[in-house]
Nucleic acid binder design. Structure first.
Lengths: 225, 225
DNA sequence: CAATTTAGGATAGTGACGCTATCTAGTCAA
DNA sequence: TTGACTAGATAGCGTCACTATCCTAAATTG
């Protein structure tokens, strides 16, 4: 297909496609002449992926490039790729292998996980815990254990759900799964807050999730905003 | 204290403090003269909060302003404030009350939660699910249930942990808790991935979390990057 | 076969964002 | 009185993710 068709199919503007081509995010089409190239479904899919990583996950273009290179490179080792992918996710933190991350270490020890400061998520955790502390809401051990148990359940499932066929798809699955499902988790957590809050704190008559099997309740008169 | 001291105590540059004052994020100090004002601990704490929301949570300055106004406004209703706070979190989505969010609705129905399209997190969930779908990794029912159970555990704890004394602190707690702990969850999930992946996929001899009580294992020779 | 459309490549410009730098003028301690 | 400090106003900067404009040339259409 021609560029114009790619524009239509993907919903991405020509200017942006040219930009992604320049930046090396989108692979060039097969040149049919000096002034014409042929694109296919892989280009459509790649554009969807680029937009998802940029718009939904919130990754900067340069980090998207890293993740895509990781997926494309058949030599990458699955386990190492996971670490690489994580370090490309926002908020980006430049980890210092020499540095100590006391809050993260304490947290991981409490959760019974190994503390490997080289994992890119360790400085991310440290910074997040430090931020919570600095605003007067330090992470309690109790909360840590609740959260730790919850993420472990997700993690176990995520890893087991990685297809065991060829490395390529397994790689793509693990790399993208970490990134793509993160906004889903965030949105679900926010909705869980709303749901629990409506049950515990909301006005009487607010629609709530019934504790046991029961009837759907009527919609609220005004939106909870 | 004077501005220079506030700069020192907070670690925020004078130029940035002036910027936050201009933007209405930081409340002005008590003017002692035409050219001098007095700041206190509340200003130090506020600056820490501003930085945490901007740097760690990744909120744009204008959204930070909304969240701070929400915290400062004593008239706000706790339950409504939760929704407001959520809508200020990135990635920002302008929800259309008229619109239907089929993926989000199906997901919530499956989880047994009420579908209230007015909740700001509903369009966020819709977009996240659509993005997963568009890159060829649609959210399976199984994964949805695992995630749903996990976030519910966190949500229940979060809401119960809100202090029941004065409205002001409860408000601050619920609003900030949603935002501040989100990066913690993200980092913990990434670490859970690493931890589980190391156990299931990692090279032999890699440090792993023992299944039962056991010895700490030695650090790896090279970093998993 | 001429005219129009479309494509590719290069380069410069745009608008939002989060500061940052400079300037002015007033104040206060030494 | 001199020099450091301050508030307030305004303009500028660097990054980011595009976006718009040229130019050239091939391909398509009438």
């Amino acid at each position: 297909m021609r560029v114009s068709e790619l524009v239509e199919r993907s919903g991405v503007s020509l200017a942006s496609i040219k930009y992604y081509l320049r930046e090396g995010l989108l692979m060039p089409g097969v040149a049919t002449s000096v002034t014409g190239a042929d694109y296919d479904e892989r280009h459509v899919k790649r554009l969807a992926l680029i937009r998802a990583l940029i718009d939904v996950v919130g990754m900067p273009v340069q980090k998207v490039k890293i993740v895509l290179a990781l997926i494309d490179d058949p030599d990458a080792e699955l386990f190492e790729a996971l670490g690489q992918a994580v370090s490309a996710l926002p908020p980006a933190i430049e980890g210092d292998p020499e540095a100590d991350y006391p809050r993260a270490r304490a947290a991981l020890e409490r959760l019974g996980q190994v503390y490997v400061p080289e994992y890119p998520a360790v400085p991310q955790l440290e910074r997040a815990l430090a931020a919570a502390e600095s605003v007067g809401m330090p992470m309690s051990d109790e909360r840590l254990e609740v959260y730790g148990r919850a993420v472990m359940q997700m993690g176990e499932y995520d890893i087991r759900a990685i297809p065991s066929d060829g490395t390529a798809s397994a790689l793509e699955y693990s790399v993208l799964g970490t990134a793509i499902y993160e906004p889903v988790v965030a949105a679900l957590r926010r909705l869980a807050h709303q749901d629990v809050a409506a049950r515990l704190l909301g006005p009487a008559g607010w629609p709530t999730t019934p504790k046991g099997p029961g009837e759907k309740q009527p919609a609220p008169r005004s939106a909870p905003r």
